[in-house]
Computed example of a mutant assay.
Amino acid sequence: MVADLTSLSLLGAGVLAGAMNAMAGGGSFVTLPALIGAGVPSVAANASSTIALYPGGLASAWVYRGGLTEIAGLGLRPMLAATLAGGLVGALLLLSTPGLLFDRVLPWLLLIATLALAFGRQIGPALRARFRAGPATLLTTQFLLGVYGGYFGGAVGLMMMAAWNLLDGSDVKALNPARTLLVSAANTIAVLCFAISGIVHWPQTALVAAGAIFGGYAGAVLGKWLPSAVVRVATVLFALAMTITFFIRGYH
Rank of each mutant, 00 (worst) to 15 (best):
G211E: 02
R179D: 12
T245H: 15
A81F: 13
A174P: 01
T50N: 11
V15P: 12
L167G: 00
A195L: 12
N176K: 05
L88W: 11
R132C: 05
S197P: 10
G67I: 01
G134F: 03
F194S: 06
A24Y: 00
S49A: 12
A133N: 01
A133Y: 05
S96E: 12
A22L: 06
L16P: 07
L35E: 07
A81P: 09
M20C: 11
N165A: 12
A116F: 14
G211R: 02
A118H: 08
L53N: 07
T69R: 15
L167Q: 04
I244C: 14
G150T: 07
F102G: 06
G12Q: 07
A185W: 03
L32Y: 08
G250M: 10
L88A: 15
L207C: 08
I213T: 12
G18Y: 05
A209E: 03
A34Q: 06
L94I: 02
A3R: 12
R121F: 10
G25Y: 01
D171T: 08
V172G: 07
M1G: 15
L92H: 12
S228H: 10
W164E: 03
G67R: 09
G149N: 15
T180Q: 09
L11F: 14
P203T: 10
F214D: 04
G86D: 07
T137F: 14
L32V: 10
P107A: 11
R128N: 00
L192N: 07
R132S: 11
F29C: 14
R132M: 04
V233C: 11
L92I: 10
A220M: 02
I199R: 13
L226I: 08
H252Y: 15
N46T: 13
T69F: 13
M159S: 11
A118L: 10
I189W: 10
F152M: 10
R104P: 13
S9W: 11
L76F: 02
M1L: 15
P41F: 04
I213K: 09
V30C: 01
A133E: 00
A118I: 03
A220Q: 04
V89A: 14
F247K: 05
W202T: 09
V147D: 03
I196K: 14
Y64L: 00
T83P: 01
L32A: 06
A81E: 08
A174V: 09
A17Y: 02
F119C: 03
T140I: 13
H252D: 14
S48T: 13
N187P: 03
Y148K: 03
F152E: 03
V40T: 09
M159V: 11
L181P: 05
T6N: 11
L207Y: 00
I71P: 00
M242A: 14
L158H: 14
